[in-house]
Structure formats: structure tokens, C-alpha cells
Amino acid sequence: MNDTVLVLSVVSAISAGTPILFAALGEITTERSGIMNLGIEGMMLVGAITGFWIGVETENAWLALLGGALGGILLSLIHAVLAISLRVNQIVSGLALVIVGSGLSAFWGNSGDRPTLVQTKTGVRFDPIFPEVIRDLPVVGPVIFGHDPVVYLSWVLVAAISYFLYRTQTGLSLRAVGEDPGAADASGLSVTRYRYVSTLVGGFGAGLGGAYLAIGVIGTWAAGLTAGAGWIAVALVILSGWRPWFALLAAYAFGALRSLGFTLQIAGIGVPSDFLAMIPFIATYLVVIVVSASPTRARKVAGPAALAKPYSREAR
């Protein structure tokens, strides 16, 4: 029963969706403060190569994950300085991050002859945490209890960020900064500080996602291994309406699309994989239009009002 096509699909959807989920959770936090960072793809790649490198050097999967997150944070710091302090156009700065990140990671990752994580497998992977008896339970075994600890970490993060944004004073302040920085500033909140921290949280999420993709999902490094996962995360933030729990669902749905081609083939239904690859992007395109066209419903799922608008006190 545990190896039915459906169960296997759900398991692989969760596995494929987790890196995207980390990146999207980070970006939700960033965008809630009014900063748009389109550089997720670049930050994920830098996170992946940093994580891979530290994994090979230390043979410790957790240090590798942490190192990947740090790599993402460093790259997001560039975006923070440009977008917040220098008020550079955030689209331009984010795209620059993609080019810098993919160029740097490919240059670094391909220089010299580094062994792959598969070849140096001593400990550099995550093992499932639940005992085999529980993991062998029908259906819920593999779907709920069969994952490695990082997947559970992502569930904890979803709950934590959701609680933070909606149930804490600081979360409320963060959202205020993203909705109306002028008013937030007047009420004594430091717009700059909130935006800096949440931009770095975005880098943390993307770096973590990239590192987990390299270590936990693919198990090796290859230049450009994200293959557009960062862009899917950008789409996912919008589709989820900037809400963490919806991001979880959407991440697994997109994860399922990545493995669905195989499943459908088994079922004898021929849907070209290129069309499956389009679905996240078409869905996001349509959602943006529908939300914009319906002002009454838009308020609930539209983005922060001050998203991608630089804030300058002098120009208030």
C-alpha cells in the first residue's frame, strides 16, 4: 500500500516542494515589509554551493544547511543596501542578484575538482527521524512520518512565521511598514531596520532552500541546479497571497507538478512535461489579473501596498 503511485507522488511532491517552500517563506517575510527581492534564484544557487562546499569540508549536514543559509543572507545584504539605503529600483537590484549569484556559484562550483556529496557520503545527508515501525504504517507512515528532519523544520517555520506575522506586535509592525511606511515611521517604527532584517530573512530562507536542494533532494552540486526553482518561489509568494500556510499548500502542489509527469505516464495519460512546467506560471499570471480586476476581493489577497516602493523620509 505504501508503494502505490499516489503515496509515492505525495512523498516526492513534499520532497521537491520543500526547497521552494523555504525560499517562499523567506520572500513572504521580505515582501511583507515592502521590499521585493526577485533575486531568489541567485540566492538559492549561492546557498546551494556554499552548503555543498561546507558539507564536503565538514561532513556535517546541519553545518552545511547553516552555511547555505549564511550564503543566502550575504547575497541578500547586497539587495538590502541597494534597495533600502540607496533606494535603487528593486526589480533591477533583484535581477542583478540573479546574475551575480548564478555566475558566482557556477564559477566557484566548477573551479577545481571537487568530489560530489554522493562520493563523500559519510554523514552528509539527512536521515528520517521516526523509527521504522512508524514509517511503515500504511499511507500516513511515508506521507507524515517518513521525512527527514528538515521537512519538519519547514513545517515549524510555516507555523512560526504565520504566528509572527499575525499574532505578534513585531509582526504587526512589520506589516505596517510594508503597507504604509510613512505612517509606520511617524509612529516611531524604524522602517530601515524592519526592512533590513526582513530582507535578510528572505536571504536566509532562499539560502536554506538552496542548500537543502543540493544536499537533501538532489544530493550533489551542478551549476544551475535550481533550474528555475527560485522563479517558482517568486510565483508562489503571489499565489499564496503572501500567507505562509497557503505557501505550504502551493509549494507541494508545485512539487507535485515536478513529479506528476512520471505519474501520469504510468497511468497512461500523456501530458507533455512542458505543459506541466507552465502551470505555476500561468496560474500566477491569471491570479494577478483576476485579483487586479476585482477590487473587492483584491484587498484580502493583494500584496503589501508599499511593495517595491523605495521609502525616503525626505520625500514623505
Binding site: G42, L82, S93, A96, I99, G103, A106, F107
Partner: peptide
């Protein structure tokens, strides 16, 4: 790939 890194740096500094 160093050339893409350089291109990204030019982009960042110009921005």
C-alpha cells in the same frame, strides 16, 4: 562563468 559574475557586478555597481 566568471564573465556572468562580472556582468552581474557591473549591473549592481551601475544600479
Amino acid at each position: 562563468e566568471i564573465v556572468f559574475f562580472l556582468q552581474g557586478l557591473i549591473f549592481l555597481f551601475v544600479a
